[in-house]
Nucleic acid binder design. Structure first.
Lengths: 211, 211
DNA sequence: AAAATAAGATACTGGCAGTAGTCTATATGC
DNA sequence: GCATATAGACTACTGCCAGTATCTTATTTT
């Protein structure tokens, strides 16, 4: 039953220096999320520990648990904070095939990046918690559907596609298949020829069929 | 440094009764796999423990580790043992749409079953181990491609599809999209109307486009 | 200035993967 | 049939980590 208290802030684990003042509320929350983000891309989701985050943030675990109910919840919050806020520019080459390939390459880059890896690990670990899955899905699916519908709409205006192709299901076929490659193959990155295969064997014929 | 030895086989954890003879080699391996299978469908992959399997098999953990290097490896082996050996009958209604829907429903049933859940959890936990992922992929992808190509070939013979549709990419589009639903939505089962959407908005138009 | 709130520090619980060492039943070799 | 090698059985242990509890103390609120 010996409990020692040397006091002194920042005496945690050598990760963070002593601080003059004690952070609270939003500022502290911010610091924790930043620490979690750094840990995520340094060691990855599976190796991220709450002790690690706490040490890096210069705080204690229970402070983290006061805000997020679990490791997974913290990481979901941190992941969302990592996402680029700015809406990306949508390819517009005047040719549907080029636009689609450009979109798919971008998706491939994202999924093969550390962020993509983290996303998949996180998503897998969350499956038992529908609430948290929903949080995620919104962000992911919405982010894709819009741009793909846009390049399809432009193609339709050029006569490259029929208006019947302008459904979310058709529009996101290519990314959906790409995502599937990752799920099944568990590879670091999907090679270019698979991207071309998806575009030429599935996406383009399908879009043309909806004319 | 007190080490006690009461001896007596089967004194493990009350799970398995004492055994007259000591199992070895193949028989023991079989018993362990059977125990793992039972644990898998009783508690699921995330909650399966090596202690649990050992107790149920009436053996000790190190005996398991002598055969499989890790919990994941054991479960992969057990999972493969669970798969039905008999090749399934392929739907043949004389109508491509009906065949495709039947195939997709079957896939949906499989994926929403406990086995499907285990498969996804396992696959997710394995991603860092390319060797083991490959083991899996063979089994899964091959199992789908054949039947889908068969129903497509029959459709082609009836003039419902062109020979250009007879590629693995096109043939498996529907299951691939279904798998994607599970990955993204994290639901227990995919509703019937999504299956119809996949068939009617993607699979059929695509196949017809390849005529 | 007193009371309330929440941060900080530390220790603890409990579970589990994987390892080690010792004993002993069975198989194998002579 | 006996000696030796192999590997199963048992127990214990290490190390790691999620999540909890408790106590002290800085800061805010009243």
């Amino acid at each position: 039953m010996t409990v020692e208290h040397d006091g002194g802030p920042g005496a945690a684990s050598g990760e963070a220096p002593a601080r003059a003042t004690r952070r609270r509320g939003a500022a502290l929350e911010e610091a924790i999320l930043r620490a979690a983000i750094e840990e995520l891309d340094e060691v990855g989701y599976p190796s991220l520990t709450m002790d690690g985050v706490a040490a890096r943030a210069g705080t204690a675990k229970n402070v983290i648990y006061r805000r997020w109910p679990s490791r997974a919840a913290l990481c979901v919050a941190a992941y969302r904070r990592m996402l680029p806020a700015a809406p990306e520019d949508i390819p517009d080459t005047g040719d549907l095939r080029s636009d689609a390939l450009a979109m798919l390459r971008r998706g491939n880059d994202r999924m093969s990046s550390p962020m993509g890896k983290i996303l998949r690990e996180l998503l897998a670990d969350i499956q038992s918690d529908p609430e948290r899955v929903r949080e995620f899905r919104e962000q992911l699916v919405r982010g894709n559907t819009g741009p793909w519908l846009t390049i399809l709409a432009r193609a339709a205006a050029r006569g490259e596609a029929g208006p019947a192709a302008l459904t979310p299901r058709v529009a996101t076929v290519a990314v959906d298949l790409l995502r599937n490659e990752y799920a099944i193959n568990g590879v670091a990155t999907v090679p270019e020829d698979i991207l071309a295969e998806i575009v030429d064997q599935v996406f383009l014929p399908l879009v043309r069929a909806h004319t």
